[in-house]
Amino acid sequence: MEPYPSGLNTTLTASIPLSIEFKDVRLGFSEGEILRGVTFSAQERETVILLGETGTGKTLLLKLAAGLLRPDSGSIRVLDKDISSLSESELLDARRQIGFVFQEGALFDSLTVGENVAYRLHEDGVDEDEIKPRVEEVLRFVELAHTTDSLPSELSGGMRRRVSIARALIGRPPIVLYDSPTAGLDPLTSQTIISLILRLRDVYGVTALLATHRLQDGFALANFHFDPQAKKVRRDSSPESSRVAPTRFLVLRAGKIYFEGSPDELMKSQDPYLQRFLI
């Protein structure tokens, strides 16, 4: 067995409140235990990149954070609520604080783009007069204002992901969970999605968990920022420790956190397993 990398660092700045906190979370299915005691946390406005091979439990962690699955043991706190002990009806309320971007978008295929985006507002009983401008606003944000009346089947894969981001954004949630948002997309479309996530982070200040197996997505989030004045994505030249929206990597392996640290620590790691991600 390869030794744990020296960059493993689970300490966080105590002064910043925690948005998400996993403590010794275990989850298994009939095939066996998938998560074997996962402990980590995400501070407010922080972006945590969940990195790992396929089948290591990245999506499961996101679904646990959204309360879509219950852990076999351990506790999960989201915005100071222990969601692992909430009933299903209490969870429905808790989930309104979380935006979830599914891997394939998971758009309602019988509804138009506008109806998909407005779904949550309709559920909340928001006035029709208020819904329309808000839908237009978020669709403009993802640069898809012209697709309001289109059906999801008429959109490309990248456009569907952007609509999914718009749908997650409409409720103005403080936390957004991204499940492999760039999986299966070409490099240019992936870049568009990442710059959208950057804008969402730097304009709205959301806390994010992003599951991916593409290291470049993580580094793009760590090294770039969106400049609202210039309306451009720029390289961040300030030191990592002083950034308003820090980015941290978690590497999952065999159902456990194998590495936790900053992009710099990951880059400098000599661990053979982590090196495989860096090549």
Partner: peptide, 17 residues
């Protein structure tokens, strides 16, 4: 079909039973 395309999960994630 809604279940396998995660539309049911999306519904739950948006606070709908």
């Amino acid at each position: 079909s809604m279940l396998v395309t995660e539309q049911v999960d999306a519904m739950r994630a948006m606070g709908t039973d």
